[in-house]
């Protein structure tokens, strides 16, 4: 076989593995969220299918697969049908630069890794807005507009907190940032504790999680931009959402908590453990705090997080020079 064909097949194998991980991760995270929320509300949660309800989500996935795909009559067919695709593709692309061990990156270690991550992860909004606009339903459009406002407010503090890490490491490559933490023997969460907290709040707001879930506030907007979707199309949207949540936690683990670094266990397992620890914090926050209003959401970012993250950037820079 020619060399390029082997390379090509290797990439295809990697993509298949990543998609398999995305599927398993989606099923596990939904189960985990349902169990954790049940514990926090003194309920039992899913417990019928399989031990501790662990097979419940597989049954749900099969159910979604056989559900009717209702196409709303007033919708713009092309925009409406493309929205789940546009939401899922960036969720998968984020995995490309994730380092899973020393000298091991899922795709390639791009030298503009952080810029790539910021660009790709904010692309999900285009899919959300296509869903909201294309559905031609009032609930969907309101949800999409709120998602847009939230992303615009929180994108800048998010990028500024990422930049703090880039300053500390002196590189934009994600593998380089993890390697810098290993070489120096301390994680960037210690010099960058303010940046870490800002990153975490911003990521929850951008994903529409936690107290910031007014994008799909079910008491006022039914399901937000997902209202007009059903069956597998909705399943894909939900999968993209949970994958984004996992990758956001994984990015936080790599930038601030040393990524694959850790004793005894293999690197990828450390990354997954750290990411899941952060995912569980997100779930904890989500099921503990009440939802904020839209003006509170915007105030928190524009009047507090943005000035604080700018000042934090300057303070860290002064310490470095």
């Amino acid at each position: 076989m020619p060399g390029w064909l082997i390379d090509f097949l290797w990439v295809v194998v990697k993509v298949t593995l990543v998609i398999a991980f995305v599927g398993v991760n989606f099923i596990f995270m939904v189960w985990l969220e349902r169990k954790l929320s049940a514990k926090m509300q003194a309920r039992i949660g899913p417990n019928r299918v399989g031990p501790h309800g662990s097979l419940q989500l597989i049954a749900d996935a099969l159910k979604l697969f056989s559900k009717e795909d209702i196409k709303p009559a007033m919708a713009d067919p092309k925009v409406w049908a493309l929205a789940p695709v546009v939401m899922f593709a960036p969720a998968l692309l984020v995995f490309y630069v994730l380092p899973v061990g020393p000298n091991a990156v899922i795709g390639t270690d791009l030298n503009v890794g952080l810029l790539y991550l910021a660009a790709v992860s904010s692309f999900t909004l285009v899919g959300i807005f296509m869903a909201g606009w294309g559905s031609n339903s009032k609930y969907s459009l309101l949800g999409a507009m709120r998602a847009g406002a939230a992303l615009m407010a929180y994108e800048i503090p998010l990028v500024l907190s990422i930049l703090t890490v880039a300053m500390l490491a002196g590189t934009l490559s994600v593998q380089g940032i993890v390697q810098a933490q290993v070489d120096r023997g301390y994680y960037f969460v210690f010099p960058g504790i303010v940046a870490f907290i800002i990153y975490f709040i911003c990521v929850m707001a951008e994903l529409g999680r936690g107290p910031f879930d007014l994008v799909e506030a079910e008491h006022e907007l039914v399901m937000g931009y997902q209202t007009e979707y059903s069956g597998m199309r909705w399943g894909i949207m939900l999968m993209a959402e949970y994958t984004n949540q996992f990758t956001a936690a994984a990015i936080a683990a790599m930038l601030f908590l040393g990524g694959w670094d850790g004793p005894f266990l293999p690197g990828w397992l450390w990354l997954v453990i750290k990411a899941y620890a952060l995912v569980m914090v997100m779930m904890w926050v989500r099921w503990t705090l009440p939802r904020v209003r839209i003006d509170q959401l915007l105030d928190l970012s524009w009047k507090f997080l943005l000035p604080v993250s700018l000042l934090n950037l300057v303070v860290v820079a002064i310490f470095l020079v």
Binding site: V11, V18, F65, P84, F88, A89, L92, T108
Partner: peptide
Amino acid sequence: DLLVFLIAGLTFPVLNVVLSS
């Protein structure tokens, strides 16, 4: 390689919807 990832990310949802239909 990135292009392969992008194509996979675009085809996987379409494949799912078609299979379920």
